[in-house]
Every structure is written in structure tokens, then in C-alpha cells.
């Protein structure tokens, strides 16, 4: 893994369920123990992606951008 690379970002704006969850899961599987930013634009995606992340052992920090657009910061919890 390269050092100093940009934070992993998953942009699923414009996609409806279950694609946001599927893409976030792929990013989690491909980048274990790394923080991930997910950009969503529905309340449903916010809820479902947060649920996935928590079940995988991440803390979720939610930042509302505008309307139903959110940035979710997933941070792996230290074991």
C-alpha cells in the first residue's frame, strides 16, 4: 500500500439502493482499516451506508452538505 495517498472516496450520488451499499462494501473490502469518505444524496442511502459501516466496525461521522446530500466519514474502530 502506498503511503500518503488520498483518502478513499466513494461517490454514489445519483444511485439508488442497493448500489451505494454495494460500492461502499467493495471499498471497505479493498481498503481494510482505512478511513473512507462516502458521498450520498438520499436519506435512505445515508441510513443504509451508515448501517453497513457500523456492522463492519466503523464509526460514522455524518456531515450534511445541502438538503439530502451528505458526506459520511467512516473511521475504522481500533481493536
Amino acid at each position: 500500500m502506498k503511503k500518503g495517498r488520498a483518502m478513499v472516496e466513494v461517490d454514489v450520488r445519483g444511485f439508488s439502493c442497493p448500489i451505494p451499499v454495494v460500492r461502499t462494501k467493495k471499498a471497505i473490502d479493498a481498503n481494510p482499516n482505512q478511513p473512507i469518505v462516502v458521498l450520498v444524496e438520499t436519506a435512505v442511502s445515508k441510513e443504509n451506508v451508515s448501517r453497513l459501516a457500523r456492522s463492519k466496525g466503523y464509526s460514522v461521522q455524518i456531515e450534511q452538505v445541502v438538503g439530502d446530500e451528505y458526506h459520511l466519514l467512516l473511521t475504522p474502530l481500533m481493536k
Binding site: C17, V21, V44, E47, V49, S50, R51
Partner: peptide, 13 residues
Amino acid sequence: YAQMGLIPAGTIR
């Protein structure tokens, strides 16, 4: 699957 966030939008509504 529910825990993984695979929940239809209609269900949440």
C-alpha cells in the same frame, strides 16, 4: 442483510 444496509427505500419510507 438488513444489518448490511440492504434495505429497500420503500421499507424505510
